[in-house]
Design a binder for these strands. Sequence first.
DNA 1: TCAACAATCAGGATTTTATGCATGCCTACT
DNA 2: AGTAGGCATGCATAAAATCCTGATTGTTGA
Lengths: 221, 221
Amino acid sequence: MHKILIVDDEEKIRTLISKYAVFEGYEVCCAEDGMTATELLRSRDFDIVILDIMLPDVDGFTVCRELRKTKKTPVIMLSARGEEYDRLHGFEVGVDDYVVKPFSPKELMMRVAAILKRTSNVSGDAFEYEGLKVDFAGRIVYVDGKKADLTPKEYDLLFYLIKNKGIALTREKLISNVWGYDFFGDDRTLDTHIKLLRKNLGSYSGLIVTLRGVGYRFEAE
Amino acid sequence: MHKILIVDDEEKIRTLISKYAVFEGYEVCCAEDGMTATELLRSRDFDIVILDIMLPDVDGFTVCRELRKTKKTPVIMLSARGEEYDRLHGFEVGVDDYVVKPFSPKELMMRVAAILKRTSNVSGDAFEYEGLKVDFAGRIVYVDGKKADLTPKEYDLLFYLIKNKGIALTREKLISNVWGYDFFGDDRTLDTHIKLLRKNLGSYSGLIVTLRGVGYRFEAE
DNA sequence: TCAACAATCAGGATTTTATGCATGCCTACT
DNA sequence: AGTAGGCATGCATAAAATCCTGATTGTTGA
C-alpha cells in the first residue's frame, strides 16, 4: 500500500484529495504548512507527495528542495491558475508533475497512479520484486536471498533493464546504452549476455521478455 | 466530433451551455430531468455529460450512479453555490469534475476540453477503448485485462491502424507503411495479418472495419 | 446472379533468437 | 615477467517463431 503526503493550507482541498486517495486505496497523511511537511518528510518515508506551492510559511518549492537533499520521493505540485511560469522553476527543483487548480480530483489520481507505476519497485536505490533484489548502491543482486554473481556487463545490462522496466527496449537502444554509442559489436553479443544474465537470475529469468524483431523488456509486476 | 449531453432543468442554462458547445464544434443533446437523461445515456453513447445536481425528479448523483453501472462516460457536475459538500459525495459516484454555479461558460468549455483530451483514447503513450488497451511504450496489448500475444507484424499493423484511427487506409498505404516502401508482397499477406490480428483482438476484432475495394479502417468510438 | 473482392488455411521459406564453444584480452597473483 | 582465471566477444549451429504464398472458400454489392 502506497503512502501519500498531502500538503495544502486549505482544509477543503486536503479533505477532497484525501477522500479520493483513500478511495483509491492509498494511505494518506496531511500537512497544512511547509515546516510540518518538511518535518514529516524527514522523519517518515512516503511514496509520493502532493504539494501546494502557496503555503503559509515557506513555499512548496522550498519544501521540495529541502526534501531533495536527502530523498527523491516523487512530488506533484499544485499551482493556482496563472502560476504557469513556475513550471520551469519546478523542474530544477525536481518536481515530477504539475496540476493546476482548480483541478479534477480524478485527473490528479490518474497522475499519482502514473508516477507510482513508474517508480514502484525502484525505490531510490534498490529494486525488489518477489525474491529478486538489486541493491543499486552496492551493485549487488540477490536471488532468493542468495547473492548472485554477476559480471560487470551483466549487472549493467540488468540495471538498464530495470531502470526501464515495462518499456520495450530495442537492441540498438540496449547496446548503445549499456555498451556505449560507439560500440559496433556483433548482434549476438547482446544475446549472449542476456543468456548469461538469465542464467544468473535463475527462476526470475522470465522477467526478461524477448520481443522478437525488437529487443527485450523487463517485466516486474 | 464529440457528443455532449447537457442535463439541467433551467432552460436558460441549457441554452447557454448549448450555444457555447455548438460554437466549439460539439454535437449537443439536452435533457431537462433525470429520467430522460438516464434513458438517453442508456440508449446512446456520449463523450461527456454535463449534469446539474438539482433536477426535478431524481438528482444528478443518482443519474451518475446509474450511468456508472454500464459506462464510464466522463461527467462534469454543476452545483449551485454553497453545495460544496457535494464535492465529497461525488467521488463515490465517479464524477470527473465540478463547476459551481454561477459559472463562466468559457471555463466550463475549457474543462470539457481538458477531460475530453485526457479520455480520448490515445493519451500520449497508451490507447484505451473499452476492454482493449495498448501500451505503446511497452508494446503490450491487453484484451479484457489479459495480455494478448501479438507477433511483431501484428503489433506494428495494429499500431499503425490505431495511430490512424477513423481514417480509411488503403491496402497500398498499409503495406508501404507497415512493411516498407520496397515491399512487393502478395495482397493476401495483408489479409492474413489482418485475420491474425483480429483473432488476437477477440471480441474487439470488429474495430478493424473492412472497406471493400479500398482497405481497412480502425474504428474506436 | 455474377463478378469482384475478402477471408481462410496450411505448410514451406525465412528471419530471428538461443545456445555452446573457442578465442583473445585484461587483471591479479605468483 | 609469466601465468591462471575471469570475462567479453564472435561464430556456428540449433531451435523457434514468424512470414509469405497460392489455392480455395466465403461474402458482398451491383
